[in-house]
Design a protein around this nucleic acid. Structure first.
Lengths: 216, 216
DNA sequence: GAGTTGCCGTACCGTACGTTACGGTTCGGC
DNA sequence: GCCGAACCGTAACGTACGGTACGGCAACTC
């Protein structure tokens, strides 16, 4: 009952445990399918016994991995509510760039594939965790920006959730589903920047209170 | 070399084989995870030996299932190029409704989960087949509509592919990824119709050559 | 009516993998 | 120098599942 306990849902993993979780992530990205406990132990240079002592079972290990990656991604800053249209546009564009970079990263793709596979079965809702730290987290972080924009008279919408979902669609389009299904689509920094700018302009055309926005 | 041959990529499955494939689909939707050859044989009231004779191996069965479902979905009509704005809007809205209904159907969700899981491993690209018959098929079918709209002076865009991807994003937004990850989101006929209309209006606001479009 | 064909049901085989157990090693505390 | 804790590497166990083999049965052919 003492010493190295099974890692609880709220605990911060130790440095060694983080190394193990990073091994899981790298293995997930590289091998995709072959995410076996033996492979993890080998990659992380630890024994299977240790894996089970720390994480309980395979699901516990995967859950801890998803949380670990989520904590890393969530380390983005909370943008100050904006006052003028240029700052608002920059904020939106920044969010779009971050989001596009995330969903097109090999780690995100592998993690989402895993979570989606798990959503098919019932047990241990990895999908919920991914949603909570991905789609919904970014929604919560963007909401104050949108509402500040509305209060400043820059945006017009009834429901910030609906407005966000439109923005989400304009940014992501078919990127995530194509990548998840194995399409060879690649998104370099240039494309990310260009797509983010386009999505932002389109969003401002739809929801902006001013002229400004370019023609398509 | 005669009699019941392994079903080739181009062959039409026989009625009995279709029944088997439907059993696979129903099992996929209901059980999700437990898509074992034994379960399929039991559900379809056939022997495993027959499954292997007809479909070669598990991957062949899954591939045939994906194709079978694709053939069923593809049975949509090819819309006539439009001439006036009302017809164009109806065409777009029809596409949006169809697409939303498809991606929110339990069958599509289960099928996409399966294909995404397979995309992680290398073998037999189910993901490619799903993409080809889903995302890309609808893109090809919508293209002539968009280009007819442009030729009629109703739409303005440089690249029809880019325009379509925007429409795709406006229609789908976060629906597919949320459903794939197991979110409890439900989309009734009312929501489908409303979302399709909203997406169409937004698209026409962005790409339309006329006033018409509502305010957000 | 004997042979052939196609298929069902089931038992069986080999393997992969989650999980457990155990011997050996390192290391901090006394 | 000794003890116990933590951990590594690996062997072993149990099970689930893909794939194969075989006996039985119904329909059809000659």
């Amino acid at each position: 009952m003492a010493a190295t306990q099974i890692i609880a849902d709220t605990d911060e993993p130790t440095a060694r445990q983080q190394a193990v979780l990073d091994a899981v992530l790298s293995l997930m990205v590289e091998e995709g399918d072959q995410l076996t406990m033996t492979a993890v132990a080998r990659r992380a240079s630890c024994s299977k016994e240790t894996l089970y002592k720390w994480f309980g079972d395979r699901d516990g290990l995967l859950t801890a991995t998803v949380r670990w990656q989520a904590a890393r991604v969530r380390a983005g800053r909370y943008d100050r509510p904006t006052l003028d249209i240029a700052t608002l546009r920059d904020s939106l564009k920044g969010f779009a760039e971050t989001w596009l970079a995330v969903i097109s990263s090999p780690t995100s793709i592998a993690l989402n594939r895993l979570a989606i596979g798990h959503a098919a079965s019932r047990k241990s809702n990895l999908g919920g965790i991914v949603l909570e730290n991905g789609r919904f987290a970014i929604g919560e972080r963007l909401r104050p920006v949108l509402e500040a924009g509305r209060e400043a008279g820059l945006l017009a919408f009834d429901d910030s959730e609906t407005a966000f979902r439109t923005f989400f669609g304009l940014v992501g389009r078919d990127v995530q589903i194509r990548l998840l299904l194995g399409d060879g689509l690649t998104l370099g920094p240039d494309e990310v920047a260009r797509d983010a700018a386009r999505a932002t302009d389109q969003f401002l055309t739809l929801y902006g209170r001013m002229t400004a926005a370019p023609e398509a």
